[in-house]
Nucleic acid binder design. Structure first.
Lengths: 74, 74
DNA sequence: TTAATATGTAATATATTTTTGACATAATGT
DNA sequence: ACATTATGTCAAAAATATATTACATATTAA
C-alpha cells in the first residue's frame, strides 16, 4: 500500500480525559490490554472497526482520535 | 472485540462519482484489485490506513465513506 | 513493608487482512 | 469474430493485527 502519511493518535489524551486506564479501555472495547498499549506506543494501524469502537467509546469522531499526517506537508 | 455495529461503505458510489474502475482505485492506492473488490462486496474491516488512503483519494472524510451502524438503532 | 494498580516488555500463538495468480463472464469497441 | 475492459470467484500464501501469558517496574495506599 502507498504510505502517503504517518498514522498518529491521541488515544492517551482521550483516555486521560475520561480517567480510564489502558486496562479499562481494553475491557470496554473488548480487546486485550496489549492492543491498547501497542496502539498508544507502536502506532500501528488498527482495523477500522477498532477505530470506530474507540471513537464511539470516547463519543467523538475517528479523525479526532487518529490523524493521517501526509508526508512532506506542514 | 465488541461488535457494537456493522461496517458498511459507500466505496462504489464514490468510485462511480469519479469514474474510476476498481483496478484504477487499487492502482492509485497501491493495493491489489482483490482488496477493493472484497471491500465493496464482503464488507470486511480494512486497516485504518487503507481507510485514510481512500478518504484522501476521494477528497473526503473516513466517515463519509465508511459507516458504523450500531446494532439495535435506527 | 505489603498489597494493589497502572504501565511496560517480550515471546508465541491465533485471527484477519491483503496479495497473488488463475480463470470466468458480461459489455464495449474494432 | 476478436480484443479489450470491468467485474467477479476461488484458493493458497504472505503480511499484519490481535490474544495470551508471564514477568518487570513504578506508584500509591493500607
Amino acid at each position: 500500500m502507498n504510505e502517503l502519511g504517518e498514522l498518529t493518535n491521541q488515544l492517551s489524551v482521550f483516555r486521560a480525559k475520561e480517567g480510564y486506564s489502558q486496562a479499562e479501555v481494553a475491557k470496554r472495547i473488548g480487546v486485550s490490554r496489549q492492543t491498547i498499549i501497542s496502539l498508544e506506543k507502536n502506532k500501528y494501524s488498527p482495523s477500522l472497526k477498532l477505530a470506530f469502537e474507540l471513537a464511539y467509546l470516547f463519543d467523538t469522531g475517528i479523525e479526532d482520535i487518529f490523524q493521517y499526517n501526509l508526508k512532506g506537508e506542514d
